[in-house]
Design a protein around this nucleic acid. Structure first.
Length: 415
DNA sequence: CGTCCACTGGAATCAAGGGTCT
DNA sequence: AGACCCTTGATTCCAGTGGACG
């Protein structure tokens, strides 16, 4: 191929001028798997000890891993996956499969993903829709058995799947061994919901949780170690002022010791400093980053809402703007009915709107508390829970173009 | 103390839209 | 082409309920 010569472009002035503080941005991503996972060696040993029989074609126990977000569960499991690939490079004895149930929501989707990670031949691949679950089960089971080896299936965020689809897949995956002649399947479930096990039926509970491992949140000192480890490879010496890492660690430790948040904080702080043209990263950058992250996540959540949810949120906002601070589901629904024609969307039933309100509550955009007004019924007391800046962005949304001339018809709450 | 409101929360059901199979 | 299958989002149905009021 002919090699082209670099010409000047509109990118030049940014590339040249910009002072790079971060030598390698990759190392600051929470998805990056370092060679060493500080403060998790004992967990790694524990898990590896349990699953090591797989390398001699014996079935390891199923494992249930429980711990809050950012305690290193996913990182540890990915790390082990990498090591497994070193120990058995051609997957002759054992295949290690990782599925994130938050990304793949439906039971068909999970099975489909497992299958297609296992099945390499194009002709045997399972179509992403159309088949009955039973058929996928059978196909997958046959294929697994043919391979004559151990399959370790890691199901991350397993509680999400359970909530959506019940325990059908777990049932299938935990009982599959009884029907296999040559191969073996062993499960590793990851959940950040401590109450998850209580929800499972006793049969599946005992099968899934043959071994249970709990990940505790990192302490501020441990977070500091983790960040330092990454900072060492991500920055040139002297760029990071000494109080930055402890500050990031302290902030994140307050919020449940989440290492992912700590890393985000450090990375965003570095980004801000870099964009500012500053020559080092200081405490001020971290504080700024903290606000930015908080705001960004809320904006992101609001942006990705479905249109109907947005209209409901808008109804809540309109109520609040109209000095109705503690509105009820009924208030929101009447406003919602009025707004819908303006934005040109169909009016959904009150029950559905109530569902959407509950959803907004779960996302933390509003506060909704069930409250009883005695004779006047039982309803939710609803408050908006997002700050002015986010609202400003929200009301600018295209779908609300025609809402400027909307006037609330009447105020129904009696004082 | 019982009543009764305006919902809640759970479940069953429907419709539309993606697809395969024969 | 017609029979099926799964997912998603909405709808319909219904029993249940906290507590102010009479």
């Amino acid at each position: 191929m002919e090699r082209k010569i670099k010409e000047s472009s509109i990118f030049d002035k940014f590339i040249d001028k910009r002072k790079t503080l971060i030598t390698n941005r990759n190392f600051l991503q929470s998805t990056y798997i370092p060679d060493q996972l500080p403060h998790r060696q004992n967990k790694i040993d524990e898990i590896v000890e349990i699953i090591s029989p797989s390398l001699s074609r014996n079935k390891p126990s199923n494992i249930l891993i429980i711990g809050k977000t950012g305690t290193g569960k996913t990182a540890v499991l990915n790390y082990i996956g990498k090591e497994m690939a070193k120990a058995d490079p051609n997957e002759e004895k054992c295949s290690y499969i990782y599925i994130n149930c938050e990304v793949v929501t439906s039971s068909y989707g999970i099975l489909f993903n497992i299958s297609n990670l296992i099945i390499k031949e194009n002709s045997k691949r399972i179509p992403f829709t159309g088949w009955s679950l039973d058929k996928v089960y059978q196909e997958l089971r046959n294929y697994i058995d043919e391979k004559n080896k151990v399959f370790i299936i890691v199901l991350d965020e397993i509680d999400k799947s359970f909530k959506e689809n019940g325990d059908d897949i777990f049932y299938f995956l935990t009982t599959i061994n009884e029907e296999l002649k040559n191969s073996m399947v062993s499960l590793i479930g990851i959940s950040n919901n401590t109450k998850f096990t209580e929800l499972l039926s006793t049969k599946i509970k005992s099968r899934l949780g043959e071994e249970k491992i709990i990940f505790t949140p990192y302490t501020p000192q441990q977070l500091t170690d983790i960040l330092n480890e990454r900072a060492k490879i991500a920055f040139e010496p002297g760029i990071l002022s000494s109080d930055v890492v402890p500050l990031c660690a302290a902030i994140s430790a307050q919020n449940s010791g989440d290492a992912r948040k700590a890393l985000d904080l450090l990375r965003v702080a570095a980004d801000i400093a870099e964009r500012n043209g500053d020559s080092s990263i200081s405490e001020a950058h971290v504080n700024y980053a903290r606000n930015k992250i908080e705001m960004d996540t809320v904006v992101e959540v609001v942006k990705t809402l479905t249109i109907q949810s947005k209209i409901v949120l808008m109804s809540i906002y309109k109520n609040m703007e109209n000095d109705n601070q503690n509105m009820t589901t009924g208030d929101v629904f009447t406003t919602y009915k009025e707004i819908c024609p303006y934005v040109g969307y169909q009016i959904l039933s009150q029950r559905t709107v109530a569902n959407l309100i509950a959803e907004l509550d779960m996302l933390g955009l509003i506060h909704a508390k069930v409250k009883s007004f005695g004779r006047n019924g039982r309803t939710k007391e609803i408050n908006l829970n997002i700050n002015k800046d986010v609202i400003d962005i929200f009301v600018e949304d295209d779908i609300f173009k025609n809402l400027e001339n909307y006037k609330p018809s009447k105020q129904m709450t009696l004082m």
